[in-house]
Amino acid sequence: MVRTAAERGRQVRARLRAAAAESIAEHGWSGVSTRGVAERAGVAPGLVHYHYSSLHALLTEAAVAAITDLAGELDALLAAAPTPEAGVRSMLAALDGHSGTDPTALLFAETYLAAARHDDLRQALSGVLAGVRERLSGWLAGHGVVDPTSTAAALVAAVDGMMLHRPLSPGPMADAVAGPLTRMLGRDAAAGGDRE
């Protein structure tokens, strides 16, 4: 099968993004090199700068894409949850799937740290978080949660914080924090909340 130059370019970019995300998790944001990413992706180092204006641009795109994919899992969790309380519990259970030293948790932590130093990364990551808060707020509003916008912001901040704490608290966290987080949902009595 003959591939076009555009298809080959897309495949190379995808391999570079995957290699960059793996490298961030393995070496830390500042420990990633152009040569290392290229070797991991199986391409010549010159292709990194052919496809990206800089190594930082590649790292930013790779990290934001990975976190966007992770954030996208929220939609499936919420769709399967019959109540806000069940949704919160599902979010927390998903966190328990990360040890804190797994590649996803490390990529998450490294990206948040780097965002404090790079405006473009901070803005891109802020956009991802705003989208998560908006989707969660809409879902909470549909389930009768009082002040869904503020509640969504607090829940996202809590979940992010727990993800950042995973290396320090690698054991199960869902059961320990589910009660306080579900109580903050503040549902109307008419909504039939299963508050604990």
Rank of each mutant, 00 (worst) to 15 (best):
D119F: 12
W29D: 01
A189C: 05
A114P: 07
T60V: 15
D96P: 09
G171D: 13
V177N: 01
S30L: 12
L95E: 03
E110I: 01
G31P: 10
V12L: 07
A130E: 13
S90D: 09
P84G: 11
P45S: 11
E134C: 04
G100N: 12
G186D: 15
R35Q: 12
S90T: 06
G192P: 10
E196M: 08
R8V: 08
T111M: 09
M91P: 00
A41G: 03
S33N: 08
L121T: 02
L185W: 11
R15C: 02
L129M: 14
L136P: 00
G9W: 03
Y112N: 14
A94T: 04
D175N: 05
G9T: 08
L74R: 12
A18V: 05
R183H: 14
H27L: 13
L95Q: 06
H27G: 02
G193A: 14
A152V: 08
A157G: 08
T101F: 08
A44D: 13
T182A: 03
A14C: 04
S90E: 12
L106K: 12
A5N: 07
D120T: 14
P170F: 02
A114C: 06
R187P: 00
D160T: 14
T151R: 15
A157R: 10
A41V: 10
H118P: 00
P167D: 06
R117V: 01
L58Y: 05
D75C: 02
G192Y: 12
A14N: 01
S126D: 15
V37G: 02
L125G: 02
D75F: 03
V37D: 04
V64H: 02
H27W: 11
D188A: 15
P82T: 06
D102A: 04
L136C: 06
D102I: 05
R117A: 14
A20S: 07
A38L: 03
A57N: 04
D102S: 05
A20E: 10
A174V: 01
L107S: 07
R13A: 11
G193L: 07
H165W: 11
A114H: 08
P180N: 09
T60N: 12
V128K: 04
R17C: 14
L78R: 10
H143T: 06
D119E: 14
A157K: 05
V177R: 01
S30K: 12
G127L: 09
S99G: 15
S33T: 15
G186C: 14
S53V: 11
G100A: 08
L55Q: 11
A80G: 09
T149D: 15
S126I: 02
L121N: 07
Y52G: 02
E7A: 15
W29H: 06
T101C: 07
P180F: 10
T60G: 10
G138T: 04
A5I: 12
Y50G: 00
T4C: 07
Y52W: 11
S23F: 00
R3I: 11
Y52N: 03
L164F: 04
G87N: 00
M184E: 01
A18T: 13
V32N: 06
T68S: 14
M163S: 06
S53R: 15
M163A: 13
R17D: 13
S54M: 08
L74H: 11
L181T: 02
L121H: 09
